[in-house]
Simulated scan of single mutants.
Amino acid sequence: MYRVLHTVVPPVAKAVWRPEVRGLHHVPDSGPVILASNHRSFADSMVIPIVVPRKVVFLAKSDYFTGTGFSGWISRNWFEGLGMLPVDRDDQAAAMNSLQTALEVLGRGEAFGIYPEGTRSRDGRLYRGRTGVAHLAMTSGAPVVPVGLVGTEELQPIGSRFPKLAKVSVSFGEPIRVGGEYEGVPSGRARRDLTDRIMTAIGELSGQEPAGVYNDRAPDA
Rank of each mutant, 00 (worst) to 15 (best):
P186M: 06
D196K: 07
G179N: 03
A201Q: 14
R191D: 01
V51R: 09
R3P: 00
L103D: 06
A166P: 01
V133I: 14
V4D: 00
E174W: 03
L136T: 09
T195D: 10
M84Q: 15
P49L: 08
M1R: 10
E154S: 13
A142P: 00
N77S: 13
V27M: 08
F70C: 05
V56L: 03
V27Y: 07
L35I: 08
P49C: 07
Y182D: 04
T119V: 12
L99Q: 04
G179Y: 03
A211G: 07
D123G: 00
P86W: 06
H26S: 10
G212M: 03
R192N: 11
T7Q: 04
G31E: 05
N38R: 12
Q208W: 07
P116G: 10
R125A: 12
F42Y: 12
G188E: 14
V144T: 04
S41T: 00
S160A: 15
D220Q: 10
A95D: 05
Q100A: 14
G81E: 07
G207K: 07
N77C: 02
R22F: 13
P49F: 12
A201V: 13
L103M: 13
S171I: 05
R177V: 03
I34E: 02
V12G: 00
V87Q: 05
D29Q: 10
H39A: 13
Q100G: 15
G188V: 09
A93L: 14
V56Q: 02
K167S: 14
G31D: 00
F42L: 02
G113D: 09
M199P: 06
P11E: 01
R108Q: 15
S45L: 13
S187H: 09
E154K: 15
G109T: 11
P28S: 05
G118F: 10
G184Y: 11
W17K: 04
R89W: 11
L106I: 07
R128Y: 05
G188N: 13
I114Q: 01
A60Y: 10
S30E: 07
N97T: 11
P19N: 11
A94E: 15
G132W: 09
I50K: 05
L99N: 02
D216P: 02
I50N: 12
E110C: 08
D196W: 06
P19S: 05
N97A: 15
H25G: 13
D220N: 13
A211T: 03
N97Q: 15
G83L: 03
R54W: 05
W73P: 06
D220R: 10
R54P: 02
P157N: 06
L205N: 07
M46T: 09
G107N: 13
G212P: 04
S62N: 11
V12C: 04
D63I: 03
S75G: 09
S75P: 08
A93C: 03
V178R: 08
P175Y: 09
M138F: 00
M46P: 00
E209W: 05
G173L: 12
G159L: 12
T152W: 08
R76P: 06
P219Q: 00
E104S: 15
L155T: 11
M96V: 14
A15T: 09
R40L: 15
S71R: 15
E110R: 14
R197F: 11
R197P: 10
P10G: 09
G212W: 02
L35T: 03
A36R: 05
R3V: 08
G203R: 08
G184W: 08
A93D: 15
A137I: 08
R89S: 12
V21G: 09
